Amino acid sequence: MISKLVLLATLYVSQFIPTTFFFQALPVFLRQQNMSLDTIGFLGLLVIPSGLKFLWSPFIDRYHLGKLGHYRGWIICFQLLLISTLLISAFLEYQENLTLLLICVFLSCLFSASQDIGTDALAVNLLEPQERGLGNAIQSGGNVLGAVIGGGIMLILLEKVGWRYSLVAMSIFLLLNLIPILLYQEQVTSKSKNLNFFQSYFQPFVSFLSRPKIIPWLLVLLLYMTGESVTSVLIRPLLVDRGLSLTDIGWILGVVSYSVRIVSALIAGVMVMRWGRKQSLIVFGIVAAVATLLYILPAMGIASFSVLYTVCIVVNATQSMAYTAILSAMMDKSDRTTAATDYTIQVSVIFLGGIAATILAGILAQRAGYASTFIVSAVVSLLSVFFITKVYE
């Protein structure tokens, strides 16, 4: 069990570092250059590969890369592509080549999202049902640790040593993080080749979507993390508006808040195993949605460091618990033979909801202010909890 958790932790940490770094740094850079909130909201389009990755997940389920293994081979390939993109980005003068930088950010998101398909499928096959509560806590905690490094430590390093050396350091770290997956020997299960290309591509989608109450469940996924999607984008320009430096933001949102998310994810993993999926989803969903309203305080100008640290810690802790619960529920709804497709469809729905939420939130915040936007996001998240009581089995 320990070896499984260590392997999954390194994989989930790796894929979150670059995207978190870019999405922590870019809103701050753009706001410092007086970009409007609705423009910043459109940064959500750069993560559209995470919303559409279900389109190529059947290929990752069906094919493998030679002797590298099945999901293991895809993971290694995409992480190497991610490292290469980071090294190219390192030598860009981002202020003069913003368009090229945004292309590199998009490619980083594409490779990271594709790696996540393989990692999630590997996790579904590695973890037994009774291991999934703790396994999903490691998954959530690994994502958060990657966010601590990418959105906290790297942001602080960026201000100290500059763009180039920060990205080179990140690339080296990701290269070292390849070691566990290189040492892992995957048990490859042969996939049936009786179906033709089109049948094999569409069959996993048809099978998944024909399950009882799966459409209402996808609606839950679309709305459940709305509060987190909105706050994760808007809190950064809000803190810039309150006069915080890059280092201040890195400590509050990157190091401290995300470290709390790791601890709360582990606590949530234990609670999921004790309470069950449905009760965990309801309780953590309500608490996280209500906690989102605390961001109204800095939006109203109550922004001392003690208030900011307290608010960000509470919001991130509760959101992490809700995220851990939803991951466990998603894994239960994934078949091992089509793990990449089943799990990725659900992840993609969450990301598509997040993209729509961040774009709409940017527009709403520009016109109605931060506080109103946070209230709307909390209401939408609570609506998803109501649906859970009706559709989750």
Results as ranks from 00 to 15, higher is better:
M1C: 04
I2A: 10
L7Y: 06
T10I: 02
Q15R: 12
T19F: 07
F21Q: 15
F21W: 14
F23N: 02
R31H: 08
N34H: 12
M35W: 12
L37R: 13
L37C: 11
L37G: 01
L37M: 13
I40N: 11
I40C: 06
F42G: 00
G44C: 05
G44L: 03
F59V: 01
H64G: 09
G66K: 00
K67C: 04
G69T: 07
I76H: 00
L80G: 09
L81T: 04
L82A: 08
L82V: 05
S89W: 01
N97S: 13
T99Y: 14
L101T: 12
L101M: 13
L102Q: 04
L102E: 09
L102A: 03
C104R: 07
F106E: 09
C109P: 05
Q115F: 11
D120E: 08
E128N: 03
P129R: 10
P129Y: 02
R132S: 02
L134F: 12
A137E: 04
G151E: 09
L157P: 13
E159R: 04
G162L: 06
S166F: 07
S166V: 00
L167M: 09
A169G: 15
M170T: 11
I172F: 15
L174Q: 14
L176A: 14
L178Y: 07
L183I: 02
E186M: 01
T189N: 00
F197C: 05
F202W: 15
Q203M: 08
F205C: 01
S207C: 00
S210D: 14
R211C: 10
I214E: 15
L219M: 10
V220Y: 10
V220M: 11
L221S: 06
L222G: 08
L223P: 08
Y224L: 07
M225W: 07
G227W: 00
S229I: 08
S229M: 09
T231W: 02
T231Q: 12
I249K: 01
W251V: 08
V256Y: 13
R261V: 03
G269S: 15
G269I: 01
V272Q: 06
V272L: 08
W275G: 05
R277W: 02
K278H: 05
I286C: 07
A289T: 08
V290W: 01
Y295M: 15
P298V: 04
A299W: 00
A299Q: 10
A299T: 07
F305R: 13
S306E: 13
S306H: 09
V307C: 14
I313M: 14
S320W: 03
Y323F: 11
L327M: 15
M330G: 15
M331P: 01
M331G: 02
D332R: 11
S334I: 01
T337D: 10
D342T: 00
Q346N: 12
V349N: 10
G354H: 03
I359M: 06
Q366A: 13
A368V: 01
A368E: 09
Y370H: 14
S372C: 12
F374A: 13
L383E: 06
V385T: 14
F386R: 08
F386Q: 02
T389I: 05
K390Q: 12
Y392F: 13
